[in-house]
Amino acid sequence: ENLWTTASTFIVLFLLSLFYSTTVTLFKVK
């Protein structure tokens, strides 16, 4: 379960960073 928890945390952080960079890009375009 420890490995699954680590993987889940990594996926969440990846999605958050992806969402953040997408938002920054949209604001830069405007």
Rank of each mutant, 00 (worst) to 15 (best):
T23F: 13
T9Y: 06
F14S: 04
V12G: 11
L15P: 05
T25Y: 03
T23Y: 14
F14D: 02
L18T: 09
T23V: 15
F19P: 01
L13G: 04
F10L: 05
T25S: 07
F27D: 02
A7I: 06
T25I: 12
F14L: 02
K28G: 06
E1N: 11
L16D: 02
S21Q: 00
L16V: 11
Y20E: 00
N2Q: 09
V12T: 10
Y20P: 01
S21M: 01
L15Q: 06
F10V: 07
E1C: 07
F10C: 08
S21K: 02
E1R: 06
F19W: 10
V29K: 06
T23C: 12
F14I: 03
V12M: 05
K28C: 08
Y20V: 05
F27V: 11
W4F: 13
V12F: 13
L16F: 09
K30C: 09
E1Q: 09
V24S: 00
F19G: 10
V12N: 01
A7F: 06
V29R: 08
V29C: 10
F27S: 07
V24T: 05
V24D: 01
V24K: 01
T22D: 00
T22W: 05
L13A: 05
Y20Q: 01
S21W: 00
K30V: 12
Y20R: 00
K28Q: 07
L15I: 14
A7G: 08
Y20F: 07
L18Q: 00
T6A: 10
F10T: 06
W4A: 14
L13K: 05
E1F: 08
W4Y: 15
K30Y: 12
E1A: 10
A7K: 06
S21Y: 05
L26N: 02
N2M: 11
L15T: 13
F19E: 02
F14T: 07
S17L: 14
L15S: 08
L18P: 00
K28D: 03
A7N: 11
V12C: 13
V29H: 09
T9K: 02
V24H: 00
L3E: 13
T22I: 13
T5F: 15
F19Y: 05
T9F: 09
S8N: 13
L3M: 14
V29M: 12
T5Y: 13
F27K: 05
N2V: 10
F27A: 08
L16E: 01
K30W: 11
N2D: 13
T5A: 15
F10G: 04
T23H: 07
L15E: 05
L15R: 02
A7P: 06
T5K: 03
T9G: 07
F19C: 11
K28S: 06
T22L: 15
T25K: 02
A7Y: 07
K30R: 14
F27M: 15
S17E: 03
L13I: 02
T22N: 02
S8K: 12
L26K: 04
F19A: 15
L18I: 14
V24Q: 00
L18R: 00
I11N: 05
L3R: 08
T25Q: 04
S21T: 10
T6K: 03
N2P: 10
K30I: 10
K28V: 09
I11Y: 06
V29I: 13
S8R: 12
